[in-house]
Structure formats: C-alpha cells, structure tokens
C-alpha cells in the first residue's frame, strides 16, 4: 500500500474507462453520451501518462496524451454543433427520440 506503482494508476484508468463505456451504453441524451466518451478518453490518457512515467514509453506517452486532448476538444466541438442542429430540428437531444430513420 505504501508505494504507488504503475498498477494503481492503470486500475484508476480502467475504472474511468469502464464508467465511460457504461455511461455511453445507458444514457440516451446525446450530451450524456459525450460525457461518457470524455471519461473513456481520460482513462486512455491516464494510461498513457502513467506509462510515460513508469515504462520505456517515456515522453512519447505524454505527447500522445496531449494530442488526444486536442483531438477530443475538436470532436466535442463538432458533436456539440451537431447536437444543437439536431435540437433545432427535433426539439430534443434524445438519440432514441429521432424517428425519421428506422434504426
């Protein structure tokens, strides 16, 4: 318990990942699902940074994590624009509520 190693960080990351996946699965609201995605990406980032600290992956892990943060922001921006557009057309952001497409 005294020393915190790589395993502990990976465990936290796994927890974040699983919470994100479950969140994506059970929420219907578009923005709720996006929050799940953010959790998943954060789990991955925590993995990368922990590996960067403890293994030979080194700085590359941090570089990748930085890119992920930037890409996630871009993705969130597009997703939000699409959600707003969807709302303008449907007056809801429930993914299931859309009725035009029988999917």
């Amino acid at each position: 318990m005294d020393t915190v190693g790589l395993n502990s960080y990976l465990l936290v990351a796994a927890m974040l990942f699983v919470c994100g996946v479950v969140c994506m699965a059970v929420k219907r609201n578009g923005i709720g699902i996006l929050m799940g995605v953010e959790l998943v990406l954060n789990g991955a980032n925590l993995n990368l940074v922990a590996f960067a600290r403890y293994t030979v992956l080194g700085l590359d892990g941090q570089v990748m994590a930085l890119f992920v943060i930037v890409l996630a922001a871009a993705e969130a921006a597009i997703a939000l624009a699409i959600a707003l557009n969807f709302y303008n057309n449907h007056l809801t952001i429930d993914v299931d509520r859309g009725s035009e497409l029988q999917g």
């Binding site: 578009g30 699902i33 996006l34 992920v68 997703a79 699409i82 969807f86 449907h90 859309g98």
Partner: peptide
C-alpha cells in the same frame, strides 16, 4: 441531423475505445 448525431455519438465512442486499446 439525426444521422449526424447518431454518427458522431457512436463514432466518438468507438474512437475512445480504440484509443484505450492503443494506450494499452
């Protein structure tokens, strides 16, 4: 707009899972 929302939501989720795999 409905197609786009479905696409972005599921696509972002798949990309997230993929990234977790990459990190591992």
């Amino acid at each position: 707009s409905e197609a786009a929302l479905k696409f972005v939501v599921y696509g972002a989720g798949a990309a997230g899972v993929m990234l977790y795999g990459i990190s591992l």
